[in-house]
Design a binder for these strands. Structure first.
Lengths: 198, 198, 198, 198
DNA sequence: ACCTAACCGAGACGGTACGTCCTGTCTTCTG
DNA sequence: CAGAAGACAGGACGTACCGTCTCGGTTAGGT
């Protein structure tokens, strides 16, 4: 049984240096170019220190990703659900889909396909925290009768989350503001209380 | 100057042995356990023969994936669009989402996040051939007035394709028949000619 | 500036535990398997405590060797030189050449080839104390005219000490009682006052 | 079961570069400073190539030692045994006891104390080839009645070989020409047909 | 009865070397 | 003469130790 090291013994300087070094390496050459050895060398840290706190380079990169991007988007309160949802979707796109954050998200999600630990960590620490507030608002909207009650909340959420991730990871299609608007429109249409199939 | 190998010289026995060996290795240990060396050894083939015809293990695995799965789903003719779409979605789920094919699809899509050549090959040879017939049927349904005309076809397609891939690749949620039904229902509701947002 | 540790503060329990742990590790896996970390862990002692009192694992192992073997052989008084020499040689063989002590002696002498500090310590604290009484007896025998006077004492001593160490360290040949007898016979023949070359 | 690589496939350039690099590293920093990684880097060779042909750095260094020193000493023919023996002993001292060769011999013999494979290789490929011609000459001298017949040849050989190795490896005493002469004198005295103990 | 200084166990730290694995190229021998 | 076999340079991996360091806790005088 692996002994969990006492986090209070952890050297803050090393931890910071490791995250910074990893960030720089990611910016310079992308995920593939990052290696445990390169991180250690850049950070001026022993290789073993890396392995003491992270099981793999994927874990380090994920922590950097969390460290740099754990800033939203937040759900605006005091607005109606459609407005909230649209604002959230645009915020998500701005923060995570384009630019380096999008590339990191693609690379990490890619690595997670063959790394169950990473997949679990990302699900718990990244994806779920972003779905949770929207789920909450959705369920309130359902109770208020603004959204169909006969849809499982997670299925409804997928209508907005899935297309953005799908274009990012699979189809490579553009995820611009127009696309986000269209997706939100379609989701709201599908979720309208009296909606019926074509 | 790299000489382009003459495809007519390609040995069918070797080609077959390589694909079979790769398939076996995938079944036995998954994508991570496959290496060019292991394929060559298992196939009784020289390493160079592999590199002559494929640039990377991803390319070999993708060819195996194509070889084993290039069998549908097909779009039923002579039925109305909702019926066609639903049947297609269930067919897709059955063939590619669960079982080994789903695992291969996840692994390859994962690898494609850091391998642009693989990403392009998969888009052209796998994803697009599956979207194309549905796009065709959708556009005919739009012309027939059965589906809203004001939606870009690829955006509309995403309503069905995205959720299945999202659960497979990102959320890890179940992709069962109920989910597929729900997604198709919601897509059709969103695409109904008179649909309006919540 | 390195402060010299105060020897009076030395914990006897730790010292004992370290020597015992080292001895056990040597018995279990030989010199190669002993590490400073393993000694500390086995002794229930901090790593730093080891380094406070010994500069290297070789030094610890040598102290264990001294601790366990510093018991002779002794030179019998009141006998003639040939008898003394023969008894000493057999005693040496019994105590140090065979069994674990012989293995330790081999390993330490081996390590001393690339560790001058260890080499010096062994020469002063182990080899010389064993040569000294024999040298003393030899010199008395020379004065008494029983042994040739024209041979440097250390050269004469080598006639007995060298063959046993040579077989132990270099040739791997047997160092049994017959060999010791033969060596002592030859040495005495060479050292006889009237001896002349072949 | 480890597959023995086919020696005919061995790259002569790499082999030469490895031996030369190892020799240089030995000259520069001694045995301790040599590492498999440093050899590979200096030789411009892959690490795996080293491990393909040698099991350890000790094996490489031993091969370098053989390569550089496998040049004698030779036993002069047509002379009487005492003259042959003395010339051989001086030749041995000149070639192997002083200078870098002596240091290498010490380091390798040291390493052999905890490396049985090395010990065996050295015994077979280095020590025995140097003892063999002397044993041969000794046995002829015994048949000719010039040397006592009642001494095992290997015991007799030890009278000359052991003291030189003992001073080199154990006592650190000088191994100069005077010492060699004295040792040869004593050995011959001990081996004279009519020799009797003191 | 309290300081205070050195000791202690524990273990994280920066490093170095290890031996293995895999990649993509090059060479040799064989059917 | 095509291709199986495998050696090659290169480089990342994860592990094992090294010797130093920092952290609290304990012990032992000296006040």
């Amino acid at each position: 049984m692996p002994v969990e090291p006492d986090p209070t013994r952890r050297s803050h300087e090393s931890w910071r240096a490791i995250l910074d070094a990893t960030f720089e390496l990611l910016e310079e050459g992308g995920y593939e170019s990052v290696t445990m050895g390169a991180i250690a060398a850049r950070a001026g840290v022993g290789r073993q220190t890396l392995y003491r706190w992270w099981p793999s380079k994927a874990a380090v990169v994920f922590e950097v990703f969390l460290d740099k991007t754990n800033i939203g988007p937040f759900l605006a309160g005091g607005e109606d659900f459609p407005t909230q949802l649209r604002a959230f979707a645009h915020g998500f796109r701005t923060l995570y889909v384009e630019g380096p954050a999008g590339t990191r998200l693609r690379e990490l999600t890619g690595a997670a396909q063959t790394d169950p630990d990473l997949a679990r960590a990302m699900a718990e620490q990244w994806f779920e925290p972003r779905r949770a507030p929207v789920r909450q608002a959705l369920q309130e909207a359902q109770k208020a009768g603004v959204v169909r009650i006969d849809i499982a909340p997670d299925t409804a959420l997928d209508l907005v989350f899935a297309p953005m991730h799908y274009r990012l990871l699979v189809s490579g299609g553009p995820v611009d503001a127009e696309y986000v608007d269209a997706i939100v429109d379609l989701a709201l249409a599908a979720l309208a209380p009296g909606a019926t199939p074509a």
